[in-house]
């Protein structure tokens, strides 16, 4: 049958051409993709070079908006004195601890409310009501309850991480294809086995996305937490830069945040990729 199709296709060369257009070889696709990645760097690099040139040639002062060279010099200096690592390490530690607490709570409560109608009716309204509160609003209370040091910061981050994870997990479980669950029923899987062999794998892709958005919020809230009084952390570098009038330090800290956030996200994606490799979507390269 496939032979037949091949001969018909070769009969019309235009059709062949169309087929070639529709399905380029893998190697071709990869090369084309690399090109477009480079395209993305063009704009920021151009802007940076222009600004650098403007400051060098005296067209701009660059006092409040320091040129890239000065930002990188600051970054290097911070790295050399070891300050950068202490601050990065502190921030990372807070995010990780807060993320783990928030994510575990989100997964557990999300799984409970996703898999049981009764529990959903019991839990969900309260959690949704709490979600409506801007997480930063908890700060004064957390400081009163947990003190001004690490506990209150971690608590704020955990709250920030919790809600997207909870929503994502509960929603993912509720949207599992009934048809696949029926396959489990046909093979008479117990409730536990159904959860392990069908629900869990089916939920994984959406769970990864929920964790990623949770991690993103974790980084958002670590800044808020470090604003409210810290002597260490990248957020402290930001505040310090503002108070001391060092915009280069602020920008250096921002760059460190960007790199750290991207790195953490990539690590999360990489470590979960084997679990969701089976997915048949266009999202493979995200």
């Amino acid at each position: 049958m496939s032979g037949e199709i091949a001969t018909t296709a070769s009969a019309w060369s235009s059709q062949q051409g169309a087929a070639a257009l529709a399905a380029p070889s893998l190697a071709e696709k990869r090369r084309a993709f690399d090109w477009r990645i480079l395209l993305g760097f063009l704009l920021p690099i151009a802007v940076a070079l222009l600004w650098e040139a403007a400051v060098r040639f005296g067209l701009a002062q660059g006092r409040l908006v320091p040129p890239p060279s000065r930002i990188f010099a600051t970054l290097l200096a911070l790295a050399e004195t070891g300050e950068l690592w202490t601050h990065t390490w502190m921030t990372l530690w807070r995010v990780v601890v807060g993320f783990v607490i928030g994510a575990v709570a989100g997964i557990v409560l999300g799984a409970l409310s996703g898999s049981s109608e009764t529990l959903r009716r019991l839990l969900d309204p309260t959690l949704q009501a709490l979600r409506a509160i801007p997480s930063i609003a908890w700060v004064p209370l957390f400081i009163l309850w947990l003190g001004i040091f690490e506990a209150s910061k971690v608590a704020l981050i955990a709250v920030g991480v919790f809600f997207p994870v909870y929503l994502g997990i509960a929603g993912a479980i509720l949207s599992v294809d009934r048809k696949l669950v029926e396959v489990g029923h046909v093979f008479r899987l117990s409730r536990f086995k159904l959860a392990r062999r069908i629900l869990l794998p089916a939920v994984l892709p959406e769970a990864v996305i929920a964790l990623r958005s949770g991690l993103g919020l974790g980084f958002m809230f670590v800044v808020a937490a470090e604003f409210m009084g810290a002597s260490e952390g990248l957020g402290y570098l930001l505040v310090d830069g503002q108070q001391m009038g060092k915009p280069d330090q602020i920008l250096a800290a921002i760059i460190a945040f960007a790199l750290l956030g991207k790195l953490a996200d990539s690590l999360l994606v990489l470590s979960t990729r084997p679990l969701v490799r089976w997915q048949d979507t266009v999202r493979e390269r995200l």
Binding site: V183, P201, W278
Partner: peptide
């Protein structure tokens, strides 16, 4: 559902 009764659905319903 009974162990001696199997079913094939309209769609394959394979676990992806």
């Amino acid at each position: 559902p009974h162990p001696s009764v199997g079913i094939v659905f309209q769609e394959p319903r394979l676990l992806p």
